[in-house]
Nucleic acid binder design. Structure first.
Length: 418
DNA sequence: TCTGGGGTCCTAGGACCC
DNA sequence: TCTGGGGTCCTAGGACCC
């Protein structure tokens, strides 16, 4: 059996933890740049605030309904997530951290009678130790466990736990679930399934496999098997090797001139370097892109990108920045209002496995030391203590984050009592 | 009237996830 | 004026090889 433990309204729950005044109030958390709503408390959901709604479109409602609004504070959420996951690992040895707010746990060693009690215990311990409410769904496969978790949240609310360990309990859940509730069925496939007359997850059990295969490829077939209780996905312990690393951002306001774009994009390239070094990886392909604002149809649109093949795989910020700048110069055209740019590294290889080039001029040992120093200084003295000149910080493109709460889990973010 | 077969690799685009 | 960011997987089709 597999459990899916999922934090309830994770980001709002994190904000509430250090701000008891908003415990019963509607809370929303905004995306980067304070753009749109990406997390809501139950109270905010009840007000009809939808996921992904642009904040500026519901500004009046937020004020009128006295909704507590926060910019996203990933440093805080990441730390609380880490603590929740540590607590889970005290109960179960095999835990797959699936995302910032959920984890699969393998429960093969737990007898059937004890599953429910264990789930209840996990839930109360996380609440007691960390302060974050979670729901637990238990079932024979990952896909069913996801569904059981949803069922626990929406139907078995009193306990927040649902154990789908018998055919009857699985059937009850499948008959309740809309096809769009199933893990792996997004909006496109929802349309296809419903047009064919499949509305609930239960309807899918008897669906024609050739049809499923034709419309949704092997992905759909696996999903079907999982719904029938035949596991296709095992527990993945430890994160799988990364295939790409990126840093892309919308700007606080549109940028037109090359210098501003360079400043922003160089910063992203530097960040990519940092991330690669943290993972012990180097990249052999670097993709750079800029984008105009597609939400402004009357603006001229131009969203080019360019792949650069690097002669020698690298994670050196200076080198990545210089390639990114070269790419940017090639794709840049004046007079467009650019809203976003980004840098994506792929062709990743472990650093100790880099093929050196015959004509390579760089002193890579020296580079490595320099990057080590750069990273250490930035860890010790805060994020951007040391950076390359081209990464000039600039109010024009800097993200908006007007409603950022403190990182309460750091010394500098501790609430003070006067 | 007739135009092989089998295979690999790469890429763009679509769909999905949180 | 204001609409997020970071990922993964699969497929079809083209290029290329022998």
């Amino acid at each position: 059996m597999i459990a899916l433990v999922d934090c309830n309204n994770f980001y709002p729950s994190c904000e509430r933890l250090f701000n008891p005044r908003i415990v019963d109030k509607p809370v929303v958390v905004l995306s980067n740049n304070d753009g749109c709503v990406i997390a809501r408390s139950y109270e905010a959901k009840d007000l009809g605030i939808k996921m992904g709604t642009p904040a500026h479109m519901i500004e009046e409602q937020l004020i009128k309904e006295k909704v507590a609004v926060f910019s996203s504070n990933y440093a805080l959420y990441g730390e609380l997530s880490r603590r929740v996951m540590l607590t889970l690992k005290e109960f179960v040895p095999e835990v797959e951290v699936y995302s910032i707010d959920e984890a699969f746990c393998k429960l093969d060693l737990v007898s059937t009678e004890k599953l429910h009690d264990l789930a209840v215990k996990v839930k109360s311990t996380v609440k007691q130790n960390i302060g974050i409410p979670v729901s637990v769904g238990i079932a024979p496969t990952k896909t069913l466990a996801k569904l059981a978790n949803r069922y626990a949240k929406k139907v078995a609310k009193d306990t927040g736990v649902y154990v789908a360990d018998t055919p009857a309990k699985i059937e009850e859940m499948l008959k309740w679930a809309d096809v769009s509730d199933v893990w792996g069925i997004g909006s496109q496939n929802e349309k296809k399934f419903k047009a064919q007359g499949y509305h609930t997850a239960y309807d899918l059990l008897n669906a024609n496999e050739d049809w499923i295969r034709d419309k949704t490829s092997v992905v759909g077939l696996r999903l079907l098997k999982e719904l029938k209780g035949l596991p296709c996905y095992g527990l993945l312990e430890g994160p799988p090797a990364k295939k790409m690393v990126s840093c892309t951002r919308s700007f606080g306001q549109a940028l037109t001139n090359l210098q501003d774009l360079k400043a922003a994009t160089a910063t992203y390239a530097g960040k990519v370097g940092q991330k690669l070094r943290r993972e012990g990886l180097a990249c052999s392909v670097l993709y750079v892109f800029v984008m105009t604002n597609e939400h402004r149809p009357r603006d001229m649109q131009y969203s080019p990108g360019l792949d650069l093949q690097l002669p020698v795989a690298t994670n050196n910020s200076a080198e990545l920045i210089s390639y990114a700048m070269k790419g940017l110069e090639l794709i840049y055209k004046p007079n467009y209002r650019f809203k976003k740019s980004g840098v994506v590294a792929s062709g990743l290889v472990p650093v100790d496995n880099i093929q050196t080039g015959l004509f390579d001029q760089r002193n890579r040992e020296k580079d490595k030391k320099l990057m080590g120093v750069l990273d250490n200084i930035n860890v010790a003295f805060g994020k951007e203590s040391l950076r390359y000149a081209v990464e000039t910080s600039c109010e024009k493109w800097r993200l908006r984050a007007a409603k950022l709460s403190p990182v309460y889990t750091r010394w500098t973010g501790m609430p003070q009592v006067r």
